[in-house]
């Protein structure tokens, strides 16, 4: 009887493998081919800038506390008013700002970057394409 369970389960798992491979390849190519959106920058480009970057973390506070890019400032939409003064105190006009969030299809970094440009009138602002996972995967 256990063989019946195992045989049927193995068949289903094997059937799932082919579409998974096709889907994975298609999605990887989709992501690789996706052009940079306005204001986005790749991790490789930011590494070329070296240490002269001001990182901004657009995620919730508890995710920031759990781990963030070294030197990053927390500036998220939930605590915008409270966090802006500290951000402005630390901001150096000579350093480009790079905003990141969780990656995947996370939009928080784009929204925070937009607010920095529009509300704080700071122009040299970029969004890290792929978010924190792409930087952590170096």
């Amino acid at each position: 009887m256990i063989r019946t369970f195992a045989r049927q389960a193995a068949l289903l798992l094997a059937l799932a493998l082919l579409p998974a491979i096709v889907s994975g390849v298609v999605q990887l190519r989709w992501n690789a081919a996706e052009p940079l959106a306005p204001g986005e920058v790749k991790a490789a480009t930011v590494r070329e800038w070296g240490a002269k970057v001001q990182w901004v973390d657009a995620r919730p506070r508890d995710k920031f506390a759990a781990g963030h890019i070294e030197g990053a400032l927390l500036l998220n939409e939930d605590e915008w008013t409270k966090l802006v003064p500290a951000f402005l105190d630390a901001w150096d006009p000579d350093h480009p700002i790079v905003v990141y969030c969780d990656g995947g299809n996370c939009e928080a970094s784009h929204r925070v970057a937009q607010r920095i440009r529009e509300e704080l009138k700071i122009g040299n602002v970029h969004v890290l394409k792929g978010g924190l996972p792409t930087w952590s995967a170096k």
């Binding site: 889907s23 994975g24 999605q27 989709w30 992501n31 969780d102 990656g103 995947g104 299809n105 996972p133």
Partner: peptide
């Protein structure tokens, strides 16, 4: 991701890593 008409796998990767 039907809401945004794009692959949802990147989001699922992030969810698993969390």
């Amino acid at each position: 991701d039907f809401a945004h008409a794009r692959p949802a796998t990147p989001d699922f990767v992030v969810a698993i890593q969390q």
